[in-house]
């Protein structure tokens, strides 16, 4: 048993794989592909993170530089399931268009990720917080269009529940604003999201999307009981991205194990670890 706990499968984050809709992921980290200094560095970091699912964005082809490097030259699409996002969309209409374009791109590649989407409908350029109304609208349309929808949202439990009710395959609350590195700002709200989303449906996947700054943020999220963490900037903009990718992998596994192990309750006062009986003591010492 001890060996089983120490083997690679356990290090990758747990006893069971993460299931989202019809997708099965062995790693509970989903890693973004943006903002690396080079595609080569990106590829090394993805490898070190242990992920098998990476997000990608859809953008206009630069017509004057069509012969230039494409991310697909550096991503092994037979190894990674790509998760196309609708990042940068500020309306449900645009998000649905981008999701459909992403599906077409991935179908052409023969990648399983063509049937799902990471939905973002943003409300504001400064905060990149989700527009809840647009997010609800786009979720409904994409579910009707057959997509497996993983939806970026705030940590509002009420909106989270509405998104699940509309058929989202995974609700993905932000820990803090995208790229801010502030970690999990409201663990209480996130815990309520988990309680609501998993009520009578304990396998429903909840993934923290956005806000991670360092490894302890990933561990903290996983310890709360989320099923996975999606991150990008915390690795890509670390001083040593490859080392941070490795740290994130370990933190994800540690947090998952700690959640499954079940933490002790917090207590106000101390409780001795060593036996309190059969102590030696001097006759002159005070009795406590």
């Amino acid at each position: 048993m001890a060996d089983a706990v120490m083997d690679g499968a356990a290090i990758d984050g747990g006893e069971t794989p993460l299931r989202v809709g019809g997708f099965t992921l062995t790693s509970r980290l989903v890693v973004g592909t943006g903002k690396y200094a080079s595609y080569a560095e990106m590829a090394r970091c993805l490898e070190a993170s242990g992920t098998d699912c990476v997000t990608v964005a859809v953008r206009r082809e630069r017509l004057l530089n069509a012969a230039g490097e494409n991310i697909l030259d550096h991503l092994d699409v037979s190894r990674y399931t790509l998760l196309p996002n609708t990042a940068g969309c500020f309306s449900a209409t645009d998000a649905v268009r981008v999701a459909r374009l992403g599906r077409e791109l991935l179908r052409d590649l023969g990648n399983a990720g063509s049937e799902w989407v990471k939905l973002e409908v943003l409300g504001d350029q400064k905060t990149l917080l989700p527009d809840p109304v647009g997010t609800l609208e786009a979720t409904e349309q994409l579910v009707a269009d057959g997509f497996t929808v993983l939806v970026y949202t705030s940590d509002d439990p009420i909106i989270a529940r509405r998104l699940k009710d509309l058929g989202a395959a995974s609700v993905m609350p932000a820990g803090s604003p995208i790229g801010s590195g502030q970690g999990i700002l409201n663990a209480n709200s996130l815990s309520i999201c988990l309680e609501y989303l998993k009520d009578g449906d304990p396998e429903y996947p909840v993934i923290v999307d956005a806000g991670v700054g360092t490894a302890s943020d990933v561990a903290a999220a996983m310890e709360l009981g989320v099923d996975g963490v999606l991150l990008n900037t915390a690795i890509a903009h670390a001083a040593a991205p490859l080392r941070m990718a490795r740290a994130m992998r370990a933190a994800c596994a540690a947090g998952r194990d700690a959640f499954l192990a079940g933490r002790i309750p917090r207590k106000r006062y101390a409780m001795a670890s060593s036996p309190e009986t059969d102590r030696i003591h001097s006759a002159s010492a005070p009795t406590v």
């Binding site: 690396y36 997000t55 991310i71 077409e104």
Partner: peptide
């Protein structure tokens, strides 16, 4: 869809978007 591109006759003022995948989070 790619398979339909050869049959997709373009007309004056059509609005096209040609997109690809890039890095993103």
């Amino acid at each position: 869809p790619r398979a339909s591109l050869p049959e997709c006759v373009l007309r004056q003022d059509d609005q096209l978007e040609i997109v690809t995948l890039v890095g993103g989070g």
